[in-house]
Amino acid sequence: MQSFLRATRALVVFALSASVVAAPLVVNVRSYGAAGDGQADDSASLQRAIEALNAAGGGELYFPAGTYLHSEEITVSGHVKVYGTGSASVLKALAPARAALVFMNATQCGAEDLRFVTEAKTRLHEQNSAALVMDHAENCFIRNISIEGSASVGILIANSHGVAISGNHIEDTLADGIHVVNGSADVIVENNSASNTGDDSFSAVAYASWPKQTDNVVISGNTSISSHARGVACIGASHCGIFNNTIRNPRGHGIAVAYESTYDTYRPFGARLKGNRIATVNPSKGTNSVLVSGARDVEMESTAIDGGNPVLVSDSSGIVVRNLVVNEQVGAPILERGHVQMKIEGVSANGNALAGGVSIVRKIQ
Score class of each variant (00 low, 15 high):
Q2P: 00
T8R: 02
L11N: 01
L16Y: 05
A18I: 07
V26C: 03
N28S: 08
G36R: 01
Q39F: 03
A40N: 15
A40P: 02
Q47G: 04
R48L: 05
A55V: 00
G57C: 05
E60M: 11
G66D: 12
E73N: 09
E73T: 08
I74R: 08
T75P: 07
V80D: 00
K81R: 14
G84I: 06
A95R: 15
G110C: 14
F116D: 00
A130E: 12
A137Q: 00
C140S: 10
F141G: 01
I147E: 07
E148T: 03
E148V: 10
E148H: 13
G149N: 14
V153W: 05
G154Y: 09
I157M: 07
S160I: 08
S160E: 07
G162V: 10
V163K: 00
S166H: 02
A175F: 12
V181F: 08
A185S: 13
D186I: 05
E190V: 12
N192T: 12
N192M: 04
A194C: 15
T197G: 08
T197C: 15
G198D: 06
S201A: 14
S203W: 05
V205Y: 10
S209T: 12
K212W: 00
Q213A: 12
T214Y: 02
S220A: 08
G221C: 12
I225F: 14
C234P: 03
C240T: 07
C240M: 06
G241W: 03
I242H: 07
N244H: 14
N245V: 13
R251D: 03
S261T: 11
Y263V: 09
Y266G: 01
Y266T: 04
P268I: 00
N276Y: 04
N276L: 13
I278F: 02
T280E: 05
N282K: 10
V290M: 14
V290H: 06
G294E: 01
A295W: 05
A295V: 08
A295R: 02
R296Q: 15
S302E: 15
T303R: 00
A304Q: 13
A304N: 08
S314L: 10
S317A: 14
N323D: 12
R337H: 10
G338K: 03
H339G: 06
V340F: 04
A349W: 09
N350Y: 10
A355N: 13
